[in-house]
Design a binder for these strands. Structure first.
Lengths: 199, 199, 199, 199
DNA sequence: CATGAATGAGAATTCATTCAT
DNA sequence: AATGAATGAATTCTCATTCAT
């Protein structure tokens, strides 16, 4: 019996992500992946059922890695604003550190191909942030707005900054990023009197 | 390569956008477009040099239409905050009104295929908004932050809301959207004392 | 506009039948057919939806040709025994004349692939012979046996002789075949007294 | 290449026949056989040199089993007509009892793949029947016709009946089959005066 | 013996594009 | 201008077979 070579699986995933980032999801062929991973095309099919499966597995892997890095060590007993900043900072840092993962996930975000992936898998991605928001709203520390709205004005702008960083259009210093975090928090923190849409 | 029958050209563009939105950029073949446009594949090549050219032309067309609709009638002598809100409101309304254009542009936003299109073309897209930001910063009405940062916390969050609207996850009432506009403005407006990264 | 080239379709069919006869149904690839027909593989897909469709169309064509040649000019007002002999003789001669059609149809007869083809299409094949049997039974000239039984002892043995002829193991002279026809007829003709299973 | 575990070899053969009967000769892959036999693909190559060898071995096995069952206990001293009926009856019963063997052999009968198998192997199959025919002709009990002709009007029609039985189109009662046997015998038995082609 | 991994060759099919009318 | 036919190149994937354990 011959055991599965973890090296090969790793090579396939790595080659896939690299190619997809450079050429695009559909412009990356199984043969190209095989060539870059130094493997026979048929070998890919030992580790993945087909191209669709490969793409899904890659997505889930990268997402899982992102979640582990961002949410790992996150302690929910910290003050809400601290937790909030920690999470966003970690997210920002993670994607700066692993730009290939960022680019890869972005490829999916607007692609009709994403429908391949179970929507529930996606929701897990934001679960800790959503819980934080809910806790903040209960404690009257965060505005009573839908989580999607809160995300739109905190997480997504920061992801946009990652994109600018990658393209070289705007690279923030540490202090600048911390100011940005404060900006994001001010966006959603509940002032004494006001707060919801109805205000 | 030169157009004649505007009806046919229109049909090709319309079919292309529809197919691309439903299936994706690369999953849409010239034959499919031809079939849906009730035209022969060869006919597409009378109006467009090749597929790459078709995609570029489509992008520029849609972008032009968006710009015309959003910036049309926009008067630069209005107060900065009014102008700001008018532009974002028009953008929001435009994309709600033409969801197929929104989806189409989003397809490109993270695709390596976008590199087909001249970067300068893209910058024109945000020019009026950038001019507004610059004017606001000069008049000490808007924080002295890079335009990319200002975009990230105003325009992009609102685009994210369009996406939520399209997916049905969050549909704002008129008053809610107006509150959101206020939120976006508060994000960048200069308070008496504070403002730049250095603060 | 460019019209369809009947020559090409003919070449594809001819190449297909030849290859299938020599190599077998599944051993014949679309590329091989294309090569032998002096056509691009993609061209086959203009004339036939896919390989399954090609095989079905081929079968129906050959069957139709066989039926036309065998049943053409067949007059149902002739005496039953004359009609019977005429049909079997024509069938025998047809398949000796077009051995490639015989071999081709035989390929299908025992293949699980045949299930591709509508069963009703197949029944048409024997319809005239079955009608003859029915008429013969009504007129008390043919034994009252199921048509399948009558076929088994008349048509199929003669098809077996075609096979022997093709393989060179047994080639009948004209008189010998006529004797054989008489033998086949004696097999099913009703003697004065006896006849059905119950006899 | 030499056998050891008869259980495994048996499992491979059984799985092969089953799959071939259901899907066809070429549509059955070594991996499928391995999976159904609960064996590794590589294991098949311990017992059989390659796919061609496997197919040939299978054919010979099934043929041998058929011959043993049909000719076993057959005593050549019985009257010719008795022997004839006994053999055909046994053949009919054998194939009804082991329909998978019947289907399997039929798969080969018209396939160009059969050329894999040594023709002499095939002739052994009919040897006892041919000897019977020869004896009958010498004793002026059977018409002086070529053995192939005799087969065509006795053995093959009955095989056709097995096929009808399998497809459900015609299932004979015991008495009906005995009548059929009589029919087959009458086909070839020599009447007082007549007999050969020359008659 | 037995195995699951590994693979090069080849399968069916589609594609963007050009040709001939 | 407009078209359907035609195509070589490329795609995903499977197969019979061998390798390494």
């Amino acid at each position: 019996m011959k055991a599965r070579d973890t090296r090969k699986e790793e090579a396939i995933c790595h080659a896939s992500i690299d190619l997809i980032n450079r050429k695009g999801l559909s412009e990356t062929s199984m043969s190209q992946i095989a060539r870059q991973a130094n493997v026979s095309p048929a070998t890919i099919y030992i580790y993945f059922k087909n191209k669709e499966d490969l793409l899904r597995q890659l997505y889930l892997r990268v997402q899982r890695d992102a979640m582990q890095n961002i949410f790992n060590g996150y302690e929910s007993f910290l003050p809400i604003d601290e937790s909030f900043k920690i999470l966003l900072r970690k997210a920002y840092q993670y994607f700066l550190r692993k730009p290939e993962h960022f680019t890869f996930l972005e490829q999916y975000s607007n692609s009709p191909l994403l429908q391949i992936i179970d929507e529930r898998e996606q929701e897990k991605y934001f679960a800790p942030l959503f819980q934080l928001f809910d806790r903040g709203k209960q404690n009257r520390l965060i505005k009573d707005l839908p989580n999607e709205m809160l995300l739109s004005f905190t997480f997504y702008p920061i992801m946009q900054l990652v994109k600018y960083h990658q393209s070289g259009k705007l690279r923030l210093e540490y202090a600048q990023f911390e100011s940005t975090l404060k900006l994001a928090w001010n966006n959603i923190k509940l002032d004494r009197a006001v707060g919801s849409f109805t205000s």
